[in-house]
C-alpha cells in the first residue's frame, strides 16, 4: 500500500534525496569510469596479444620459409655434389678400363714372353716348384697347388696396381 508523506516532511527530506541521488550518480559515474578503464585495459591487452600473435605468426612463417629455403638449398647442393662425385667415379672407372686394356695389350708385344717368364718365376717363388702353372685367358699365368692359388693374369696385375693408387688419381678431376 502506497502512502504519501505530508508536504512538510517531503520538503524536509529533499536534501537527503538530493544527497542520495548525487551519491548514486557519483557511484554510477565511478562505475562507468572503471568500466571504461577496464574496457580500455582489456582492449589494450587484446591489441597487445593480437600484436604478439601476429609477431609470433610472422616469426613462425619466416622460420618456416627459412626452413623450406634451407631444405631446397640442401637438396640442390646435395644433387650438385652427387653429380660431381658420380663424374669423378666415372673418371676413375674410365682410368681403370684404360689401364687394364693397356696392360692386357702387352700380350701382343714382343716383350711378352719375358713378362710371362717373370710371372711364372714369381708364381714358383710364391707356391713352390711343384705348383701347376697354366696360362691365363687374357695373358699372364695362373698357378695352383692343392690348397692355394695365385692369379698372375695381366688383368689381375693391373687391378692390383690400381688398388694401390694414391692421391695422384685425384689429378684427373682436380683443376
Amino acid at each position: 500500500m502506497k502512502t504519501s508523506l505530508p508536504a512538510p516532511m517531503t520538503a524536509a527530506l529533499e536534501p537527503v534525496r538530493a544527497r542520495l541521488l548525487r551519491a548514486a550518480e557519483a557511484d554510477a559515474a565511478a562505475m562507468l569510469a572503471t568500466a571504461d578503464k577496464d574496457a580500455a585495459t582489456i582492449l589494450r591487452q587484446a591489441e597487445a596479444q593480437a600484436a604478439d600473435l601476429l609477431a609470433e605468426a610472422r616469426e613462425r612463417g619466416a622460420a618456416d620459409a627459412e626452413a623450406v629455403r634451407r631444405a631446397a638449398h640442401v637438396r640442390a647442393r646435395r644433387t650438385a655434389r652427387a653429380r660431381e662425385l658420380a663424374a669423378r667415379r666415372e673418371c676413375w672407372e674410365e682410368l681403370r678400363r684404360q689401364v687394364i686394356r693397356g696392360v692386357e695389350a702387352l700380350r701382343t708385344t714382343e716383350g711378352y714372353p719375358r713378362i710371362e717368364a717373370g710371372l711364372t718365376a714369381r708364381a714358383h717363388r710364391l707356391l713352390g716348384p711343384r705348383a701347376r702353372i697354366s696360362p691365363a685367358p687374357g695373358g699372364g699365368v695362373l698357378a695352383e697347388d692343392e690348397t692355394r692359388r695365385v692369379d698372375l693374369s695381366l688383368t689381375q696385375c693391373a687391378r692390383r696396381a690400381l688398388d694401390g693408387a694414391g692421391p695422384e688419381v685425384e689429378e684427373l678431376w682436380t683443376p
Partner: peptide, 11 residues
Amino acid sequence: PLDGGPPVFGT
C-alpha cells in the same frame, strides 16, 4: 663410399 663417388684415395 656411400656417396656415389670413387674410392677414397689417401697419401
